[in-house]
Simulated scan of single mutants.
Amino acid sequence: MLRRVATRRTAGVRLPIAVLAMTVLATLSGCGLLGGDDTTRSSGSTGSTGGVEKAKVKVGVLPVVDVAPFYRAIEQGYFKEQGLDVEPVVMASGAASIAAVLSGDVDIAFSSYPAPLLAQSKKIAEFKIVADALTAKPGHIVVVAPPNSPLKKPTDAPGKKIAITARNTMTDLAPMSVLKTQGVDYTQVEWREMSFAEMIPAMDRGEVDGAVVVEPWVTTAMKKLGAVPVFDGASGPTAEMPMSGYVAIGGSGKFATTSPNTVAAFQRALAKAQAEATDRTKVEPMFVKYAKIDQETAQLVTIATYSTSLEANRIQRVANLMSEFGVIKGNLDVSTMIPSSTSNK
């Protein structure tokens, strides 16, 4: 039976992830981050060299379309087939999810890639990418504007107020990359930080000229506001850009290092569900049930690509994008973040 999902809220979720994570580390220093691993051994996993080291696994997730296959894997019993008892813990934000995996409240955290990559570059912890989640397709991340907005095309962007979730995320990095490629001065855009839920009312009131939204908010903005696309955030240099994944903490005594069979079992179960995600009938019910999208909207949502393999060179594109815009200082080698037990296919 699917476990009841707990909702957790973390104070200060609007803080940049680096500041948040450093605060978490400072608060918990000396208290044994991710310590006290009460592992439960099981021989129930299949297709591995041994039983899983930890059968009970908590996974921090967000109520977004990216995690639809994760919930399908739970409902279809794919994790149980691998000897895992997976409990989803719904987080208030990506920052809260990262804080939870750092503190040990969860074993694995779902997140948009910029947050763990930035934290890794600052050596906050040894992050390991357990699984790739979603890769953007045209229509998944879009700069939209209300019909009466002066923002009609990319060249209109300088001087305009455009809503994003936070700086140094895919919501500003992707459009900046597209604008830069088109020779538009992205430094003159006035980025306004707010949640996706706040963006549609803000556009309606004229407080912003446009917004960078991802599905299902792209479809919702078009339905509720008659919003029109200005340009696609997954185009040109950001076409088929990896957007999100599942991460854990590695290092001495940490989950990603002490539980390689558990990680491999999680990967197999999730990959099975993500391979089925090309069938809309199998993911739309997850949109409605867990991302809280109405049935009509779920039928219109652009379904991006759910990855079935974990490839460092693909995710490296995100790190390179962050480095290009000065979010990461120097170069970050993503291959060091892939668990050694992972087989890239």
Results as ranks from 00 to 15, higher is better:
K123P: 10
V130H: 00
S341P: 08
S111A: 13
A163N: 12
G30I: 10
K123H: 11
T342D: 10
K128L: 04
T10I: 13
Y113F: 09
T238D: 01
Y290W: 07
L300P: 13
A95C: 14
Q295C: 08
Q182C: 09
T336M: 15
A100S: 15
L28S: 08
T257K: 02
T10A: 11
K282Y: 05
A96P: 05
E311D: 12
V52H: 00
I315Y: 01
T155W: 12
S97L: 06
F231D: 01
S335L: 13
S335P: 08
A304E: 15
K153P: 11
A277K: 05
D209C: 10
S111E: 11
A273Q: 07
N331R: 12
D294N: 09
K56R: 12
V24P: 03
W217P: 00
A265Q: 02
V247M: 02
K137R: 09
P150K: 13
V130A: 00
H140L: 15
M199P: 01
P16L: 11
Y186F: 12
S43M: 09
R14S: 15
A221D: 11
T23N: 15
A256L: 02
V334Y: 00
M286F: 06
K224Y: 08
A21H: 04
A115V: 08
Q120I: 13
V263H: 01
G36Y: 08
T262I: 05
Q188C: 05
Q82T: 04
I315E: 07
G233F: 00
Y113C: 01
E311I: 12
G139F: 06
G32V: 11
F110Q: 04
M337S: 05
G226Q: 11
R192P: 08
T258F: 04
D185E: 10
I74C: 03
M176I: 13
P229Q: 08
V283R: 04
G245H: 02
V263F: 01
